[in-house]
Amino acid sequence: MSVQPIEDAGDSVPRNAEGIAAALSGARRMEFYRELLAAAPQDAEAVLRRWWCEAVLDVGQARGDQLTAAALAGTLPLRSVASVIEHRRAAGLPVE
């Protein structure tokens, strides 16, 4: 049996307008900018928070699509369960 580590997409999307826009596709990016520019100053933070969540989901979906394609193509890098257990033990994490 093998495992594949999953990266946290939230770490890859900066929590600012530029980072959010970079993570979104063209049409969604334009929708984000329209909503942000139309928001009252007191609502801008809520718009950024909501769209950051959307951007993280988009990045996660793209990463999932890449993992699926690599698995189907047989090119997915794998680690043995034994190496994961050893890594967790070395880090002081539970292995049960």
Rank of each mutant, 00 (worst) to 15 (best):
26 G>D: 15
60 G>L: 04
65 D>S: 10
25 S>D: 15
80 S>V: 04
79 R>T: 08
79 R>N: 04
56 V>Y: 01
26 G>F: 13
52 W>F: 08
11 D>K: 10
21 A>W: 01
18 E>S: 10
76 L>Q: 11
30 M>G: 06
25 S>R: 12
48 L>E: 13
56 V>F: 05
4 Q>T: 11
89 R>H: 07
14 P>S: 14
29 R>E: 09
18 E>P: 04
62 A>K: 14
73 A>H: 03
65 D>N: 15
86 E>R: 11
34 R>D: 14
26 G>Y: 02
11 D>N: 09
82 A>G: 02
67 L>C: 06
12 S>F: 00
37 L>Y: 14
44 A>F: 06
77 P>N: 09
17 A>G: 05
74 G>M: 09
73 A>Y: 07
68 T>G: 03
54 E>C: 07
46 A>R: 15
55 A>S: 09
52 W>Q: 13
63 R>M: 11
38 A>G: 09
56 V>E: 05
77 P>L: 03
95 V>G: 06
88 R>D: 14
72 L>N: 08
68 T>L: 12
75 T>Y: 02
47 V>N: 09
41 P>D: 14
71 A>S: 12
90 A>D: 02
31 E>F: 06
39 A>F: 00
37 L>W: 11
12 S>E: 08
32 F>M: 02
46 A>V: 10
5 P>I: 08
1 M>S: 12
89 R>T: 00
65 D>R: 15
14 P>F: 02
59 V>G: 05
93 L>G: 06
65 D>W: 10
25 S>W: 00
60 G>W: 00
7 E>H: 08
1 M>Y: 13
92 G>W: 02
81 V>R: 11
23 A>L: 05
87 H>Y: 08
89 R>D: 08
35 E>W: 05
48 L>K: 13
76 L>H: 03
51 W>C: 01
44 A>G: 05
84 V>H: 07
43 D>V: 11
83 S>D: 12
31 E>A: 15
73 A>Q: 09
43 D>R: 15
58 D>G: 02
65 D>P: 03
63 R>T: 06
65 D>K: 15
72 L>Q: 13
38 A>Y: 00
76 L>D: 00
43 D>S: 13
84 V>C: 10
65 D>E: 15
63 R>D: 13
52 W>M: 05
55 A>V: 04
46 A>N: 12
90 A>I: 01
61 Q>I: 10
87 H>T: 11
28 R>A: 05
50 R>K: 14
89 R>E: 13
36 L>A: 04
51 W>R: 05
32 F>A: 05
16 N>A: 01
92 G>A: 06
95 V>N: 04
10 G>T: 00
